[in-house]
Every structure is written in structure tokens, then in C-alpha cells.
């Protein structure tokens, strides 16, 4: 198995541990990820808010580059915003011939073209449907027994395109986490919005959303995420939000492949636990019980 890999900008910066742990997990599983040469930013939610055609053009350039490398290899995308932006181009250019024509013109400037682009896949989709929980179970050498995890999906890997899970009541992470030996804690907030970039521009509004999520996560050891924006919003503002809520809402927040990596026997450095902003003492104690040395 081989995938064309689109890391995206966050994974080269504030979400580097998502990138490193994803690559490490796939290496451990014997699967090759080939990064798209000269990939560009997907536009996040900013491009569409400036120009919808610009957003499509940025996504299209990446599809064209991936197609030129290997049209038969799916594009693996860990970031949910990047995933949606690339997926949107894949879907919309099929339905909208005028858009397809405009994109051809734009890509033509660089002698690029889209003919039969590879499929865009979210990391979670690939883990659940290609790798499968059964394989993870077989390869788990360090079961995370007794670790209580709430799976957080956020929005853009689920909606608007319901590709691999129920877009309102998702369950795809459950089997993966159980295969790692962890206990999945039931909660209501798995598919709710974290506020996304409102945390920068309308923090009072975004903090309310994160507060609800953190409140419902109480009692778990960790939140598992599959998006750098969600991860940052859930881990980066816990002190301020606890102050607003009048109660301590601090909780460990990790990327799903970090947890999977630990279960597969990778050490903390290989999944870059030293980069997480929220790892709580109770969680770290449990890791020590699994013989995982904790960074400081």
C-alpha cells in the first residue's frame, strides 16, 4: 500500500507532532507515504472568505500535482480543513463545468492539468477502512489499558461530505481506540464545532463552544483529535476557559496517531509528546504505567 501525502501548513508548524506521529505510525505499519512535491496551502477557511475561486484554485493545484505524481494513489490528508478543501475541488469540478474550465485556465499557467485526479482521503478514513481496527489490534504491542479517551471529530472531516462516518453521530474512532487497548468514554460533543478561527477573531464566541466540549470531557483521561485547529483550540485555552467556567477544565489533548503510535510500541519522542500543550499529571502517570517515559 502506498499513499500520496499532503501534510499542509499547520503540520509543518504548530501541528508538527501530528505530522511526525502520522508518518511514524505508517512507517511502523509498513506503508509508504510520498509527500506531494511543491504542494501549496489549501487556503484553510481564509481563501473562501476572500474569494471562492481562489479557494478552489489552491486546492486544484494540489490535485494536479498529486495526479502528475501517481494518479492511482489516494491522497492522504491528516488535517480536516485541508481535507475538506481538497475534497471540495474533487467534487465541485465534476458537477460544475464552468468551474472546471476556469481551473484548467488557472492551472494552465504552470502547465498543470487535472484529468482524472486521485481520490482525496482523510487520515481517519484510511485508518478505519484501509488499515482497519483488526490490523491495529494485531500490531498493538503496548495496549493502553485503562486509559479513558473521548474521541473528538470536529466538523470538516465529517461535513458536508459524509464519506466514511455518520456526519452527526460519528463512531469511526471507537474501534481504533479500542484496538489500542483504550477505553472509549461515551459523550455528546464528538461532532460539535470547536469555533475554528473564531478563536482568533471572535474569542468570546469560540470560547463558549470549547467550554461546552471541555465540560463534557470531564472524567476522561484524554481527548483524541484529528484536526490541528481543533487540537489547538482544545489544548491552548484551558486556563482562560477554566477561569470563565469557574471550574478546572484542564484535560490532556492528543492527536489520534500519537495514541495509536504509543500502542504500536513507539516511544514518546517518535510521536513528539513533548510538543503537546496540554498533558495532565494523571494522564502522564498512566503513561508511566505503560513504561512510556514522559518528556519535560
Amino acid at each position: 500500500m502506498n499513499y500520496t501525502y499532503y501534510p499542509g501548513c499547520s503540520l509543518s508548524g504548530s501541528a508538527m507532532e501530528y505530522d511526525v506521529s502520522t508518518r511514524a505510525v505508517f512507517e511502523r505499519l509498513g506503508i509508504t507515504l510520498t509527500e506531494i512535491d511543491d504542494w501549496n496551502c489549501c487556503g484553510a477557511t481564509a481563501a473562501e472568505a476572500v474569494s471562492s475561486l481562489l479557494g478552489s484554485a489552491l486546492g486544484a493545484r494540489n490535485l494536479a500535482l498529486a495526479e502528475s505524481m501517481d494518479p492511482s494513489s489516494d491522497i492522504l490528508v491528516p488535517c480536516s480543513a485541508c481535507y475538506l478543501n481538497l475534497k471540495k475541488v474533487e467534487m465541485e469540478r465534476r458537477e460544475d463545468p464552468e468551474l472546471a474550465k476556469n481551473l484548467d485556465t488557472i492551472l494552465g499557467e504552470e502547465d498543470l492539468a487535472i484529468n482524472n485526479p486521485p481520490r482525496v482521503r482523510h487520515l481517519l478514513d484510511v485508518l478505519v477502512n484501509d488499515i482497519t481496527a483488526d490490523t491495529l489490534l494485531q500490531k498493538t504491542t503496548r495496549p493502553l489499558t485503562g486509559l479513558r479517551v473521548v474521541p473528538y471529530y470536529g466538523c470538516q472531516c465529517l461535513r458536508p461530505y459524509a464519506v466514511f462516518d455518520d456526519p452527526e453521530a460519528p463512531t469511526s474512532m471507537d474501534g481504533l481506540l479500542r484496538a489500542c487497548g483504550a477505553e472509549v468514554v461515551e459523550w455528546e460533543m464528538g461532532a460539535r464545532c470547536c469555533g475554528a478561527s473564531n478563536m482568533s477573531t471572535k474569542p468570546e464566541t469560540a470560547k463558549k463552544l470549547v467550554q461546552k466540549i471541555l465540560m463534557d470531557a470531564r472524567g476522561a483521561d484524554a481527548i483524541a483529535t484529528v484536526c490541528p485547529m481543533c487540537q489547538l483550540n482544545l489544548e491552548g485555552f484551558q486556563k482562560a476557559i477554566s477561569r470563565d467556567a469557574g471550574t478546572d477544565l484542564s484535560i490532556s489533548v492528543l492527536y489520534l496517531p500519537q495514541l495509536i503510535g504509543l500502542a504500536l510500541g513507539l516511544d514518546q519522542g517518535e510521536v513528539k509528546l513533548d510538543k503537546n500543550l496540554a498533558l495532565m499529571p494523571g494522564f502522564m502517570e498512566k503513561l508511566l504505567g505503560f513504561d512510556i517515559v514522559i518528556p519535560h
Partner: peptide, 21 residues
């Protein structure tokens, strides 16, 4: 406060192809 946030993001993307945070 929002639109200049989006525009600044896109300006960094225009300059380098990728956003530099």
C-alpha cells in the same frame, strides 16, 4: 478584525505558497 485576518493569511500564502504562521 476578521477580514484582515483572512487577507493577511492569504498574503503569506501568495508570497510563499504556504502560510508561515
Amino acid at each position: 478584525k476578521s477580514t484582515r485576518f483572512y487577507k493577511s493569511f492569504m498574503e503569506s500564502v501568495r508570497r510563499h505558497g504556504r502560510v508561515r504562521e
